[in-house]
Computed example of a mutant assay.
Amino acid sequence: MTFHVTVQPSGRAFDVPTDETILSAAMRQGVGLPYGCKDGACGSCKCKMTEGRVAHGEHQDKALSADEEAAGFILTCCAKPQTDVVIEARTVVGAGEFPILKIPSRVSALTKVAPDVVVLKLQLPANNTFGYRAGQYVEFILRDNSRRSYSMASAPQAVNSEIELHIRHMPGGKFTDHVFGALKEKDILRVEGPFGTFFLREDSDKPIVLLASGTGFAPIKAIIEQLRAKGINRPAVLYWGARVKADLYLHDWAEQAAAEMPNLRYVPVLSDATPADNWSGRAGFVHQAVMADLPDLSGHEVYACGAPIMVDSARRDFTARCGLPADAFFADSFTSEADKNKSP
């Protein structure tokens, strides 16, 4: 049995089998609904259901609270329709532009850029047709068929023969222990993608705030490379937050990009600088540095990526205190497997 799902205000409609989530069916049929983790942990796919009934799978309370669910909100990534359904959600132009592919990739370089961060470069098959938008991510398919998600840190090229990813070591993590232990050049890894609706909206001319914490810098780096490659001259400022200076693992790259791109500024921010850092730059929480410099964000777009607490704080404070329109905040919250596996 299938049910009919209608998306307002766009009027897009598609059918969903009873055993499939709304998001999965939308992606399969090229309907660009917003989403992030696909695991009920980040809340990026939350929208209002105005008609119908769904059954929700497991999800995190922070992604969808009981009060929100009672008020008619759903997570399309874990909601399976029980009747025909009407939802209110913005459709994301370009989200289904590139087909989702499963491809083998060969490790071409492993570079340790911080004590707990590796830049991993993957060579794709010579005949590949893999395409993506800067900001999107791939999933590694592990031997037990579990998956781990990482954003591309390099902008798409005319022929994507290589992609770059930034991997932070999570001690005890099934995948990152392997990356920081046994993985070596020429090893083969299986990836699938592209996924995600976090990418630059090129139909806008608004000034851009790029906000990153930790390895949330990866998709932001890809967006900066895209701005440069396409000659997009919108004013942009990069705020990169970390605990100590070593965590700004591509600080020199960011400084050089800002020096070479007249419309890009770079503001690094440390929350726990040590005397050894000899730090004379900005201190504190990175999203608060944005608010101090740009108290009026009403005419901006914000692209935020990193730890959930940073993304959530920025979304709340920028919209409530700096006048940022809710639909001008684009985010990718880096939820770990530990976050996803917490009891709902």
Rank of each mutant, 00 (worst) to 15 (best):
1 M>T: 10
2 T>R: 15
8 Q>G: 05
9 P>K: 03
9 P>A: 04
12 R>D: 14
15 D>A: 05
20 E>S: 07
20 E>Q: 07
22 I>V: 07
25 A>K: 09
27 M>I: 15
32 G>P: 04
32 G>S: 05
32 G>Q: 02
35 Y>W: 14
36 G>F: 00
39 D>R: 13
39 D>T: 11
42 C>K: 02
46 K>D: 14
47 C>K: 09
47 C>R: 04
47 C>D: 09
48 K>T: 10
57 G>Y: 03
60 Q>W: 09
61 D>E: 15
63 A>D: 10
65 S>Q: 11
74 I>W: 10
75 L>K: 11
80 K>T: 10
83 T>K: 14
85 V>R: 14
85 V>A: 06
86 V>C: 00
90 R>I: 15
93 V>H: 06
95 A>V: 09
106 R>T: 14
114 A>F: 00
116 D>I: 01
117 V>H: 12
119 V>A: 02
119 V>L: 11
119 V>D: 13
120 L>T: 02
120 L>M: 06
121 K>M: 03
121 K>Q: 13
126 A>P: 01
126 A>Q: 13
130 F>W: 04
131 G>R: 02
132 Y>K: 02
133 R>K: 15
136 Q>L: 06
138 V>I: 15
139 E>T: 04
142 L>V: 04
142 L>P: 08
146 S>G: 10
146 S>L: 08
152 M>N: 08
168 R>S: 11
178 H>T: 14
179 V>I: 04
187 D>A: 08
195 F>H: 11
196 G>D: 05
196 G>A: 07
199 F>A: 01
201 R>Q: 11
201 R>V: 02
205 D>H: 15
212 A>S: 05
214 G>W: 03
218 A>Q: 07
219 P>Y: 10
219 P>Q: 10
219 P>C: 05
225 E>P: 08
225 E>N: 12
228 R>F: 00
232 I>S: 00
238 L>I: 01
242 A>D: 04
243 R>S: 12
244 V>R: 14
244 V>H: 01
247 D>M: 00
247 D>V: 01
249 Y>S: 10
251 H>W: 04
256 Q>M: 07
257 A>I: 03
258 A>N: 05
261 M>E: 12
261 M>I: 14
265 R>D: 10
270 L>Q: 04
273 A>Q: 13
273 A>M: 09
276 A>L: 14
277 D>S: 06
281 G>C: 00
283 A>F: 14
292 A>N: 15
293 D>P: 07
304 A>R: 03
305 C>E: 06
310 M>L: 15
319 T>C: 12
319 T>F: 02
320 A>P: 01
321 R>A: 13
321 R>F: 13
327 D>M: 11
338 A>Y: 06
342 K>Q: 09
344 P>A: 05
